[in-house]
């Protein structure tokens, strides 16, 4: 039986009828058309679907949409303002941290939380901070550099 829920995503409120077992990832992609959040494994193993609930980065495939009501959800589409890239997005472009790009949005959301909690992380903190996000293209080297650059700027 579908239930009507209310989600606040990137500052917009949406009323949506969803199955109780619908994940936040499914609702973002298939109901709200927010395709920047990627599905990679549906089992909390890759981090491609990372979004923010409040200021916490979470795997949206591991979260029921029902349980995300009454909280502020931010997706990659909610970063940046006035048509400009957010500092972390910009650093990913400039440091060459994007290859196939499928992990990129989740990685940026995790990096945002990392920098929120620790504005000047050392390399170890960055590497452990993004260990829950898999990337198969880059070897992470330029991703770590991008996060360092974003922290510096």
């Amino acid at each position: 039986m579908k239930q009507l829920i209310s989600l606040e995503v990137n500052g917009d409120r949406h009323e949506i009828a969803v199955e109780p077992d619908a994940t936040l990832l499914e609702v973002l992609r298939d109901h709200l058309g927010l395709l920047g959040t990627k599905q990679g494994c549906d089992s909390g193993g890759c981090g491609c679907c990372t979004v923010h609930i409040g200021d916490r980065a979470v795997y949206s495939c591991m979260k029921y949409a029902l349980s995300a009501q009454h909280q502020k959800i931010t997706t990659i589409e909610g970063l940046g303002a006035d048509g400009k890239l957010d500092a972390v997005q910009d650093a990913f472009v400039r440091e060459g941290a994007v290859q196939c790009g499928y992990c990129t949005c989740g990685m940026i959301m995790t990096a945002k939380q990392l920098l929120h909690d620790d504005p000047h992380p050392d390399e170890d903190a960055i590497r452990h901070g993004i260990a829950g996000n898999l990337c198969r293209c880059t070897g992470y080297h330029k991703i770590v550099e991008a996060i360092r650059t974003a922290a510096r700027d």
């Binding site: 927010l34 395709l35 920047g36 990627k38 599905q39 990659i76 589409e77 970063l79 940046g80 890239l85 997005q89 910009d90 990913f92 472009v93 400039r94 060459g96 994007v98 790009g101 499928y102 990129t104 949005c105 940026i108």
Partner: peptide, 21 residues
Amino acid sequence: KRVLRQDAFEKVVGGKGFPVN
């Protein structure tokens, strides 16, 4: 030259061009 990737600008804001979309 260390030219910036053209597709990176699109990929950091959501990457709408993936076949999965």
